[in-house]
Amino acid sequence: QAAAPSAGYAGIGRPATAKELQAWDIDVRPDFKGLPKGSGSVAKGMEVWEGKCASCHGIFGESNEVFSPLVGGTTKDDVRTGRVARLTDPGFPGRTTLMKVSSVSTLWDYINRAMPWNQPKSLTVEEVYAVTAYLLNLGGVLPDDYVMSDRNIAEVQQRLPNRNGVTTAHAMWPGAGLGRAARPDAAGVACMRDCATEPKVASILPDHARGAHGNLAEQNRLVGAQHGVDTRPAGAA
């Protein structure tokens, strides 16, 4: 049960009003707490997408121009298993949003609060449902005639390609509720002498990339025990 508010600092802060809570308490959790009632169709979503999203994310959500692709890399089989197979392939290059997202609430919540990037919080509830559905449709998760709503969103969750692809079995959550490992999983060894190491250089900045970050001489101060190395291309003044 909630404790009574402490009276130690009386008069500092005041109760929030219902209207204020409504204006700011917009988060939507994986259990859909916070999700407003409403619905939106894939068809309507396409309209929203092409009008307000495609300029940045590409007509198929695959653009890499302003951000990494949202769609791609998932299969029908992933939708069935809830595991994105390509994530086990170290050779696969990028990872799209749909390859990673494990809760549909996260997409809804984020689009609602942050998109379009240059006009966040401008979408209606229907638009958010619709464009979320359309994104999932682009990814082959929802059919063309789907109307997503607060009533069927739990079903949508059960189709997310990577819904089963996550774990909290690690030691990096600093609380008791999540994360089940007691000790860090990757640790060094406190050897001091003749350690079992072959100090062989396996990776070194290639010469042609030495200047890819500009002239390093200009990225160190003018005086010091070390100066910055001049990485201007040979022949530059």
Binding site: V84, L87, S102, T168, M172, W173
Partner: peptide, 9 residues
């Protein structure tokens, strides 16, 4: 192929 979530420390 699993993603660890809530890796915070």
């Amino acid at each position: 192929g699993l993603h660890r979530q809530y890796t915070s420390t």
